[in-house]
Write a protein that binds this DNA or RNA. Structure first.
Length: 341
DNA sequence: AAGTCGTGGGA
DNA sequence: TTCCCAAGACT
């Protein structure tokens, strides 16, 4: 694996080349948190934005919550941003501005679980650690032809990964396994002819490696309905801040009621206005439900507008508000809908 | 310990 | 279109 990695490692902004000294732990940590359940392509821009604006963990710890949440907007899983900020502040307050170098210490920090602690320990500190992400699970399930379906197979896959993890260059080994999973041992149509583990792979020998890992079927995704309230006054639109806990927690948002099983219409309107429906609707898919939104447009009088709770944000600069994608879609729909009449 | 938590891209 | 998936953590 290490020989393969020396030749085929992906060059990524948060990495050092194979066999060279490890990168700054701050950059390793930042990239690992961003990469949780998120594609490399999506992380690139946000990683550059964060490291340019906050070059050290002390800079990030001193940042305003709002600035960090805005910079994170669009990446998804917003609890990561809140945990990331809490983690940076804990590193400064409790660890003198230096990340702990061992898994046990890393695990005590917010947003760092078993995978991330192992990855940081191996990649940033050269510690031997068992690094198991989705890629590694797939590679190892095939290598040993593990028939147990996920997620029940996780302990078994962890033990098998432990067995093949070397003490030398543990960070490069972990990244090699992940690169292999991302580029060769892919979920569908693995490129076995290019794989350095070709002759050792039990699934390859069986003739149908893509069959593994087995997985338990997922439940169907329910559909929910909601209304977005586009409240416009004097070239600005009313934005609110969502509560810290729960879906899209802590993010700036357009006013909306609960998202429920049947179309709520104007039931949760934040004010008694002469609402006008924008044509069409907005479709957005979350992890565990699909959402269908209609947009209601209201134009308050001056006296009424000043009483509404929230921020009046200039519509021309709405792209700087740090809206999660679902609200950015709704805003687009509202602006287009108004233009259509 | 199953459910919660985003988003965009590829097949 | 629809489904699946991507360097998981937290409760």
């Amino acid at each position: 694996m290490l020989a393969w990695y020396d030749r085929h490692a992906r060059a990524l902004p948060w990495r050092s080349p194979p066999g060279t000294p490890p990168p700054d732990p701050y950059r390793v940590w930042l990239s690992e948190v961003m990469l949780q359940q998120t594609t490399v392509a999506a992380v690139r821009t946000h990683f550059a934005r964060f490291t340019q604006r906050w070059p050290t963990v002390r800079d990030l710890a001193a940042a305003h919550d709002e600035a960090v949440m805005t910079a994170w907007a669009g990446l998804g899983y917003y609890a990561r941003a809140r945990n990331m900020l809490a983690c940076a502040r804990a590193v400064v307050a409790d660890h003198g501005g230096h990340f702990p170098g061992d898994e046990q210490g890393l695990l005590t920090l917010p947003g760092i679980g078993r995978y991330t602690a192992a990855a940081i320990a191996a990649i940033a500190f050269g510690r031997r650690a068992v690094v198991v992400d989705g890629n590694v699970e797939r590679v190892v399930a095939r290598l040993f032809a593990v028939e147990t379906p996920l997620p029940a197979a996780k302990p078994e896959l962890y033990a098998l990964t432990d067995r093949i993890t070397p003490s030398e260059r543990p960070g490069d080994f972990a990244q090699a396994m992940m690169d292999l999973g991302a580029t060769i041992c892919t979920p569908r149509n693995p490129l076995c002819a290019l794989c350095p583990l070709d002759r050792d792979c039990a699934a390859r020998a069986s003739g149908d490696p893509a069959r593994l890992p087995r997985k338990v079927p997922k439940a169907a995704r329910p559909r929910r309905y909601g209304t977005i309230f586009w409240i416009e006054h004097d070239g600005a639109v009313l934005l609110v801040r969502r509560p810290d806990k729960g879906l899209l927690g802590g993010m700036r948002a357009l006013p909306t009621g609960p998202w429920v099983e049947a179309d709520p219409g104007l039931a949760d309107a934040p004010a008694a206005l002469d609402w006008r429906w924008i044509g069409g609707h907005v479709e957005h898919v979350f992890t565990h439900f699909a959402l269908e939104l209609r947009v209601a447009c209201g134009l308050p009088e001056k006296g009424c507008a000043s009483q509404l709770d929230g921020e009046w944000w200039p519509i021309e600069r709405l792209d700087t508000a740090g809206l999660p994608t679902v609200f950015a879609k709704a805003a687009r729909r509202a602006i287009e809908g108004e233009a259509d009449g």
